[in-house]
């Protein structure tokens, strides 16, 4: 398999002087094209920091990150922004939507940045995605008029507008109830089936159990790797996969 993302010896520290601490302490990670990977670990272990570093949203002190064959360190701020807009998609724990814009406008926003002349085309695509994620009735609603689960779908629609090569999710189900969380995971699984790579940070064992590979991070280092393999909701029992993952996590002192 071709890697879509390769991080090597990534070091990232916070604080100053004697209080300076390496949050990422020589992390190396490789995500293959079309792979669905979860990062797990205790609070403060560096999960989210790794995700933000890999997506170019946060700088690193040393090491290297290659995305689709491009060294992120060589890109300017503007080139990094272009890369995020055109090849990456993001879903966060909070919906991260702009309150001034309604639901449809929020979804269309990043695409309109590049191509406002094709507004009809962009609108059609946004509406198709909304239909696909079952939120078509929210089109003209303000974001204050939607539930948490609906807003997370809005976030996913926005992430999919540019047909990204990779989606980054930072606890995308963290603020949702279990039913909404399952719906979001089913959506991500559908997206994954289209060949999009997905990298998730999660605390939730049942979420991680739906991915192909789980990286366990501890004290800023990758402490272990677990491969439950591809998940098929129709075929596999999620509870069994989750229990197996829990057992493995226990060996990691989690």
């Amino acid at each position: 398999m071709q890697p879509i993302m390769v991080g090597a010896n990534i070091v990232k520290s916070f604080g100053a002087g004697t209080e300076r601490r390496n949050v990422l302490d020589g992390v190396s990670v490789r995500i293959n094209a079309g792979e669905f990977v979860a990062i797990m670990g205790p609070s403060g272990s560096g999960k989210s920091t790794l995700l933000f570093a890999l997506s170019g949203m946060d700088s690193i002190d040393s090491g290297s990150i290659m995305f689709d064959g491009v060294d992120l360190a060589r890109l300017s701020d503007n080139e990094l922004a272009d890369l995020r807009r055109r090849k990456m998609g993001f879903v966060f724990q909070q919906p991260t939507l702009l309150r001034n814009l309604n639901v449809l406008d929020n979804i269309m926003l990043p695409s309109m940045r590049d191509n406002r002349k094709n507004v009809a085309q962009i609108r059609a695509k946004a509406k198709a995605l909304m239909q696909q994620t079952a939120i078509e009735e929210l089109e003209t609603r303000e974001i204050t008029q939607a539930s948490g689960g609906q807003l997370q779908r809005v976030g996913i629609c926005r992430a999919l507008m540019s047909d990204p090569q990779m989606i980054f999710g930072d606890e995308p189900t963290g603020a949702l109830n279990s039913s909404s969380a399952n719906e979001i995971m089913a959506l991500l699984a559908d997206i994954h089936r289209t060949g999009t790579s997905i990298l998730l940070v999660t605390h939730d064992v049942s979420v991680a159990a739906q991915t192909e590979r789980v990286l366990f991070i501890f004290d800023g280092q990758i402490a272990g790797e677990y491969r439950p393999g591809p998940y098929d909701a129709a075929r596999d029992d999620l509870k069994t996969r989750a229990e197996a993952l829990t057992v493995w996590l226990a060996t990691m002192q989690f």
Binding site: M57, D77, N78, A81, D82, L83, R84, R85, R86, F90, T96, L97, L98, L109, P110, R113, R158
Partner: peptide, 10 residues
């Protein structure tokens, strides 16, 4: 948020 989704400083 806008930066995360690819808006530049400019």
């Amino acid at each position: 948020v806008m930066k995360a989704f690819g808006f530049t400083n400019a």
